[in-house]
Every structure is written in C-alpha cells, then in structure tokens.
Amino acid sequence: MTIHEFKQALLICSLLQIGSVFFSKATFAQSPVTTSEIGLGIGGANYKGELAPSYRFGNNQPALTVFYRRDISKPITVRGGIMLSHRIKDDNTISDDAYNLPYPNYRQAEVKLSLAELSGVVEYNFLDYYDMRRNPRFSPYFFAGLAGFVYNVKLATDNGLLASDLNKPYKTKIGVAIPFGAGVKYALSRHWNLGLEFGARKLLTDNLDDLAEADGPVVANRHDKDWYFYNGISLSYTIFRLNCPPPYRATPGILD
C-alpha cells in the first residue's frame, strides 16, 4: 500500500467514525432519558487586535452569558447562548514593553466597545457525563461552532495630529465569528452543574476596533484579523425527560 492509499484509507475510516457519532440511532435520543440544561455564566471578555497585540489575562472585562444545552448522544451536546460584554481599551492599558512600540505611541487611541453575541456550538464530551452511577460526575469537553455578533464601537485619540481621522462617533456594526475552545463540567448534585470554560472567537473582520477603516495615515495592520475571547464560570440546572419506548409513541418527532 502506498502512502497516498494509506492516507485515503485513514481519511475514510475517520469519516466513518465521525458519522457513527452523529448519525447512529443513539444520536436521536433513543436512550431512556434525554437531558437539557439552562444556565447562567459570568466571566471575562478579552480582545486581541491592534490595541492589544497579544492575549493578556489582565485585559479581561466583565461579561455575562445565558445558555441552553441539550444532549444528542452520550458524547455530543449542542448549545445555544448569548454573551454580553462592555469594555474600554486603549494603547496604554498595561504599562509594559509590549505597548511601548511606535504605532501605539503614535496612535494614543482608545476604543469603547459594547458587544452582544449569539452563538451555536457542538460540544464533544470525553466522559459520559449523564451516567448517574459515576461519582464524582464530571467531563472535560471541546466545542466549536458559529456565532454572529452586533457591537457598538467608538474610537478616539489623544494625538492632535490624528484627531480628525480617528475621533469618531459611536457606530453599530455586525460580524461573524468562529467560536472554539475547551471546558469542564462538574455535577454538584443530580440537577445542578458547575462549569468552567475558555473559548476563543476567530473573527472574519479586522475592524472590531474601527482602526482598519480609519482615514488618513495607516495606523493598523490590515492583513490580519481581530479576535475576542471569553473565559468564565457557569451554573446550570438539568431537566430530565423520560422517553417512551418507540412502540408507544403516537406521533414520534425528529427529536423524539
């Protein structure tokens, strides 16, 4: 077998394995019990872009999330959520060498940013979290999905030479992001769960801070994309639903 044939065989096996996870009969809630969760989370939202060239934990600003989660199979859960955050970011937020650079010193810019995100993600759980025989009951997980967000942004500068180009009123914009990350769930009781999560959002724009479209001199690197992050803790409540055996379902639906 050649290397090319081996790669093809490996790809086919991988696709079959993924398909068995998503399209097996167990996927569509054939288990005796189906679970869903409603939850609330608090944490920090962070921004990475022109005014913050690297991720720094100290740059986190308060953020709030609400979410709904539903199990699809033992390893797979889906989650929809809303995140809200407000932050103020400037070229001198943290006094260290990372900000003592020509562009930040020249721009002297400040951004006020309010953001609301609506996301849908798929979570892969490494352990059977809803097996009540396990004690303690917990599971690490990965997640990935798609998000849309709307944000209000206001750009300003202390450099008089750039004031006419960078001092702008509030603007409302929308964007698309690709959320992904990891977390861990821990059962406090049969119904209550504690969660810890860190997630990144890869944006399809470089204008979260409104610098990429600034008039006048070039004050931003327009060849990369902005990011934002969320890390926080959550508390959720599990709702259990007993599923009737198939012969006793009068009008079974796609999620029954």
Rank of each mutant, 00 (worst) to 15 (best):
P62Q: 08
V176L: 14
L146S: 11
K74M: 10
V218H: 04
R56W: 02
L235E: 02
F57E: 09
K25L: 01
D128S: 07
N207S: 11
L196C: 04
E50N: 15
G253M: 04
G43N: 08
L235F: 14
S139D: 05
G120F: 11
L235Q: 01
G232A: 11
F229C: 09
L188A: 07
T238A: 08
G80S: 11
G160F: 12
L127E: 04
I94Q: 14
N59T: 13
L161W: 09
G145M: 05
S31H: 03
Q61G: 08
Y170G: 02
N46Q: 12
I3K: 13
Y47H: 07
A116V: 13
D256R: 01
K112L: 00
G195R: 10
S234P: 03
N92A: 14
N221I: 08
N193K: 06
Y130M: 06
N46D: 06
L255S: 06
G148Q: 05
W192N: 04
S36Q: 08
G195S: 15
A200S: 13
T65V: 07
Q17F: 15
D96E: 12
G183F: 03
L203Y: 11
R134F: 02
L11E: 12
D158S: 12
Q8S: 13
L11G: 00
I42H: 00
W192K: 00
N207W: 12
E197Q: 14
S95Q: 13
V122W: 05
G148W: 00
F180I: 06
F143C: 05
